[in-house]
């Protein structure tokens, strides 16, 4: 028997929707989806067991893509949440200026300074990151869901970007400096650990990014992103590129792992 899950999120729900459409095998999960691009879900409401996205869909685009505007929580076995600013991007940013002694690049205050970082305590680093993750729209949704239902809530890890973030034009300085300083492993481990912790604090489970999809700690293996193109995308040499949204293969892996947990 397949589990019925409600997925709430933004553009990152795409990987899961496609996985269900394209997969040859039964993933053991049926999804219904309430999602809107970016932060457009922020006017959501939960009333009388009904989750309502309250986003505009004037031309019926969302509906055509199979996305619903509302869903009754009682109809599901689990709720999945993804994207909505709960991601490693918010964590790498912190490491642009700050380091802790556990990182080789900040093992003492002088080394940290040479690397352009200020040394802070791991405790403070933890608080900053937990604060940032907790303030993500995804966590608002989870907190409110937790009040409304006893269903298991799973936060599905938004994928890391591909190495495209290291390239001029689509460059993310925070990923570049992390790689230069050799702090990728530390940042990755910190992110996963604190994501778990942050979710646990609001009564949700966290589904980490599967190791086989990760490329050198900070990145997603291109194989799990090829073929996606979701707005907002970037223009690179006149060509549209998307290096932040995973493809169906990623969605399939995540759903397979989840099905095992839900079984």
């Amino acid at each position: 028997m397949s589990k019925r899950a409600l997925m709430i999120g933004n553009s990152h729900v795409g990987a899961y929707m496609r996985a269900l459409q394209q997969s040859d095998q039964d993933l053991g999960i049926d999804l219904e989806c309430v999602a809107a691009h970016g932060d457009r879900l922020q006017a959501y409401t939960i009333e009388d067991g009904l989750f309502c996205g309250n986003f505009d869909d004037p031309d019926g685009k969302a509906a055509r893509a199979g996305r619903k505007e509302r869903a009754r929580l009682a109809d599901f076995d689990a709720i999945l949440v993804t994207g909505m600013r709960f991601s490693i991007f918010h964590v790498t940013q912190v490491f642009r200026d700050l380091g802790v002694v556990a990182m080789d690049s900040a093992r003492d205050h002088e080394t940290a300074a040479r690397n352009g970082m200020t040394l802070i305590s791991e405790a403070l680093l933890r608080r900053i990151i937990v604060d940032r993750l907790s303030n993500a729209l995804a966590m608002d949704v989870v907190r409110d869901l937790r009040q409304a239902t006893d269903l298991p809530i799973w936060v599905m890890c938004q994928p890391r970007p591909t190495r495209q973030v290291l390239v001029k034009g689509t460059r993310f300085g925070t990923f570049c400096s992390a790689l230069e300083r050799g702090s990728g492993a530390f940042i990755s481990e910190t992110y996963e650990r604190l994501a778990h912790e942050t979710c646990a604090r609001v009564g949700a489970h966290y589904m980490a990014q599967p190791p086989e999809t990760i490329d050198e700690d900070l990145f997603t293996d291109t194989r799990f992103m090829v073929g996606t193109l979701r707005p907002p995308f970037w223009q690179k040499n006149g060509r549209k590129v998307d290096f932040r949204h995973a493809n169906a293969r990623y969605g399939e892996r995540m759903l397979t792992h989840l099905a095992a947990k839900l079984a």
């Binding site: 802790v100 002694v101 556990a102 093992r107 040394l119 305590s121 405790a123």
Partner: peptide
């Protein structure tokens, strides 16, 4: 100034060195 404390002696000392500098 570190209400959660530090993870190690080394961290305390290094943060203090930074402070003094």
């Amino acid at each position: 100034v570190e209400p959660d404390g530090c993870a190690s002696v080394r961290e305390v000392l290094e943060l203090r060195r930074l402070h003094l500098a």
